[in-house]
């Protein structure tokens, strides 16, 4: 086991621990902060995979913009430790956890049979740079890129409409 694998295992354990802490905390602000921590760890794993551009996008858009929006809404609605939201174990939750474990077993069946020993592709270094992503995005995927801007416009209009309107 070399240094890279040890670093990966530490990051993986931290990612899993922060995800579990996120879904078990009562206070939504604590959950949001654990999710931000998780996003940062995933950004570091993107750097392990030589995807520099996506790692920066992950930090600015996910950990920055989206999670600030979440925290803003949590604080706007003033959600504290709500007693009604307490995580108590009943039959429905037990079944949910069992279904989750079943899903994990199913997925790990395929992961454990996935015994490819190939290393990272030799051109992995070059495909993750801003230059290469920009070239592919604007030459091969220009139309989807433009459609994304329409989607974001629709999301802006929808968000303003929903947050503004006072339903009777």
């Amino acid at each position: 086991m070399n240094l890279e694998q040890i670093a990966f295992l530490i990051l993986a354990v931290a990612a899993i621990a922060s995800a579990i802490l996120m879904i078990t905390r009562r206070n939504p602000v604590t959950s949001a902060l654990f999710l931000v921590f998780n996003f940062f760890i995933i950004a570091v794993l993107y750097l392990f995979l030589r995807a520099q551009f996506i790692a920066i996008i992950q930090i600015t858009v996910y950990a920055g913009a989206i999670m600030v929006l979440f925290l803003f809404v949590i604080m706007l609605l003033n959600l504290g430790d709500d007693k009604l939201l307490k995580w108590k174990l009943n039959s429905a939750k037990t079944i949910s956890v069992l279904l989750g474990i079943a899903l994990l077993v199913e997925v790990s069946y395929f992961v454990l049979h996935f015994t490819s020993t190939e290393g990272m592709s030799p051109n992995a270094e070059s495909i993750g740079t801003v230059e290469s992503i920009g070239k592919v995005l604007y030459l091969n995927y220009l139309f989807p890129f433009e459609v994304t801007s329409v989607l974001l416009l629709a999301a802006i209009v929808g968000a303003i409409f929903l947050a503004k309107k006072k339903f009777e």
Binding site: A19, I20, I23, I74, G100
Partner: peptide, 21 residues
């Protein structure tokens, strides 16, 4: 790792009661 994180997300969606979480 991706499968484990996905499963934790699924369990969160199924068990939690707070819409934001």
């Amino acid at each position: 790792l991706s499968a484990i994180l996905f499963t934790i997300g699924v369990v969160g969606v199924l068990t939690l009661r707070n819409a934001i979480v």
